[in-house]
Amino acid sequence: MLPSLDYALPEQDLAPKGAPGSALGKTTGVIMYTFAIWMAVRNGTFRALEAHMVTPLAGYVTGHHAASSHKSVIFFALNTPKAFGLQITSECTSALLLIPLLVMMGSIAIFTRFPVPRVLAGLVVGATLMLAVNVFRIIGIAWATWQYGLDPGYRYSHVFVGSACSLVGFVGSIMAALWVLVWRDRKSSSSGLAAAPSGVGAGPAPAHRAADGDRPRVQVSRRAGARHRR
């Protein structure tokens, strides 16, 4: 018989708290779904907050000139001949990236056994990265427009560089959120595998010794059979 593998596979508690469909998980997931719906239907308020958050940094990259925001429009380089404004539309807001993240993490909270605090931590990390990436994208568009004008500055920075930045940021944010979700389990698994050799002698060693002890008898029997044939 094969030896037991219990010594090689570390024991993991993948569900330390709660269970699928627990009240806390359902409540957390429903709240995340609600925020996702709100962002999809009424994202004007969110876009205004986003524009207000970007305004100070945008003024810094456009020659340290004054910048201001009105609703979802950011005005750069005020009181200069290069003054212009950028509007954060429904297609350019980070809400488009946050909605899938909210739906994904809400589903994990409802239908899996991951602890709710860890789900919330993953959501915070992923959402923060998505917001940071979108702020960086808008600042890059503002700087390119300030330096090179609408064409080619705005056109290339918005259509090509901005789209690539959003895609990379979305993928990286999702991966970071999932990493936060499972990193403790991976850490416990690695530590368990590293500690496994110390307990090898307890279980499988007798089986290996028994197998080693059987081999001489098999060899003797073969030699006996060979002498008998002679």
Results as ranks from 00 to 15, higher is better:
A196P: 02
D151I: 14
A95S: 14
I139M: 09
S189D: 04
V30G: 04
L120Q: 03
A195D: 08
A224W: 11
A15I: 10
K26W: 07
V54K: 04
S94L: 02
M175W: 12
G21T: 05
R209G: 05
V61G: 06
R230D: 05
F111P: 00
W183L: 06
A211P: 00
L5F: 15
G122F: 06
V133Y: 03
Q219V: 14
P206W: 06
L150P: 02
I74Y: 04
A164D: 05
L14C: 09
G21W: 03
T28G: 06
R42E: 02
A226P: 00
A211N: 04
V119M: 02
L120G: 03
V220Y: 07
S191T: 08
A19R: 14
L150S: 14
G213S: 09
L49F: 14
F114Q: 02
T128I: 04
S157E: 03
S72M: 08
L14I: 13
F114M: 05
T80I: 10
M105G: 01
L57F: 12
A121Y: 06
A15H: 10
K187R: 14
H70E: 02
V180A: 10
S188N: 13
G126M: 06
T28A: 15
Q87M: 13
A77S: 15
Y156P: 00
W143V: 00
L5Q: 11
G169D: 01
V133G: 02
H52W: 09
P115M: 01
L123Q: 05
G106N: 02
G162A: 11
M130I: 14
V161H: 07
M53L: 15
D185H: 15
G213H: 07
S221Q: 13
I74T: 07
F46N: 07
A8M: 15
P10L: 14
I138F: 12
I37M: 12
W179G: 06
V218Y: 08
R47P: 02
R118W: 03
I31G: 08
T80C: 10
T27R: 13
S163L: 14
V119Y: 04
V54Q: 07
P117E: 04
F76L: 12
L9S: 10
L9E: 05
L49E: 04
M32H: 03
V135H: 03
S68K: 13
I88M: 09
S191E: 14
A194F: 10
I99R: 06
Q12M: 15
